[in-house]
Amino acid sequence: MIVSKLLSLSMALIMSASATTSSGFDMDYEGEINIYTGEPIVDEEDTEQQTVAIADGVTYDYEQNEYTYTLPNNNTISVRSNVPDKMITTKSVSLYYDSDILAKLYLDGEELDTTDMDLTEIEDVGSYALVISDADSEYQLLSFTIVPEKTGMISNYQMPDGFEIVEVAIDDEVQNISDKKIAKMKNDGDYLVSYKCKASKVEYVLKVTIDHTPPALEIDGVDDDGRAHGPVTVSGIEKNDSVTVTKDGEKFKLDKEGYIKMPGKYEISVTDDAGNNVTREFEIKFYLDRQGLLFGLLALAVIISIVVYMVRARKKLRVR
Score class of each variant (00 low, 15 high):
residue 1 M to D: 13
residue 1 M to R: 12
residue 3 V to D: 08
residue 5 K to S: 13
residue 6 L to C: 07
residue 11 M to A: 07
residue 14 I to L: 09
residue 16 S to H: 09
residue 18 S to Q: 12
residue 19 A to H: 13
residue 20 T to H: 07
residue 26 D to F: 05
residue 26 D to L: 11
residue 28 D to M: 06
residue 37 T to P: 02
residue 41 I to S: 09
residue 45 E to N: 15
residue 59 T to C: 09
residue 59 T to Q: 04
residue 59 T to A: 07
residue 61 D to I: 04
residue 61 D to V: 09
residue 62 Y to G: 02
residue 64 Q to E: 14
residue 70 T to V: 15
residue 74 N to A: 10
residue 79 V to W: 03
residue 80 R to V: 07
residue 82 N to Y: 04
residue 83 V to K: 08
residue 83 V to F: 06
residue 87 M to D: 02
residue 95 L to P: 02
residue 96 Y to S: 11
residue 103 A to P: 01
residue 106 Y to I: 03
residue 107 L to E: 07
residue 108 D to Q: 08
residue 109 G to W: 11
residue 117 M to W: 09
residue 123 E to Y: 02
residue 129 A to C: 10
residue 129 A to T: 15
residue 133 S to M: 00
residue 133 S to N: 06
residue 134 D to V: 01
residue 138 E to V: 04
residue 141 L to I: 15
residue 142 L to D: 04
residue 142 L to P: 02
residue 144 F to H: 09
residue 146 I to E: 03
residue 147 V to Q: 08
residue 158 Q to I: 13
residue 160 P to N: 01
residue 165 I to E: 10
residue 171 D to A: 06
residue 173 E to P: 03
residue 174 V to Y: 10
residue 174 V to E: 14
residue 176 N to R: 06
residue 176 N to A: 13
residue 176 N to K: 12
residue 178 S to A: 07
residue 179 D to N: 15
residue 181 K to A: 13
residue 183 A to I: 06
residue 190 D to T: 13
residue 192 L to E: 13
residue 193 V to E: 02
residue 193 V to D: 02
residue 193 V to L: 04
residue 195 Y to E: 07
residue 196 K to P: 06
residue 199 A to D: 06
residue 203 E to F: 00
residue 203 E to H: 01
residue 207 K to N: 10
residue 212 H to W: 06
residue 212 H to R: 10
residue 218 E to C: 01
residue 218 E to F: 05
residue 225 D to L: 07
residue 225 D to W: 00
residue 231 P to L: 11
residue 232 V to Y: 07
residue 238 E to L: 13
residue 239 K to N: 12
residue 239 K to R: 14
residue 241 D to M: 05
residue 242 S to I: 12
residue 245 V to Y: 11
residue 246 T to Y: 03
residue 246 T to H: 04
residue 247 K to M: 15
residue 249 G to L: 09
residue 256 K to D: 10
residue 268 I to E: 01
residue 272 D to M: 08
residue 273 D to Q: 11
residue 278 V to H: 00
residue 284 I to S: 06
residue 284 I to D: 08
residue 287 Y to A: 12
residue 292 G to Y: 01
residue 293 L to K: 12
residue 299 A to I: 12
residue 301 A to V: 06
residue 303 I to R: 08
residue 305 S to R: 03
residue 307 V to C: 13
residue 308 V to Q: 09
residue 312 R to I: 13
residue 313 A to Y: 11
residue 313 A to G: 12
residue 319 V to G: 02
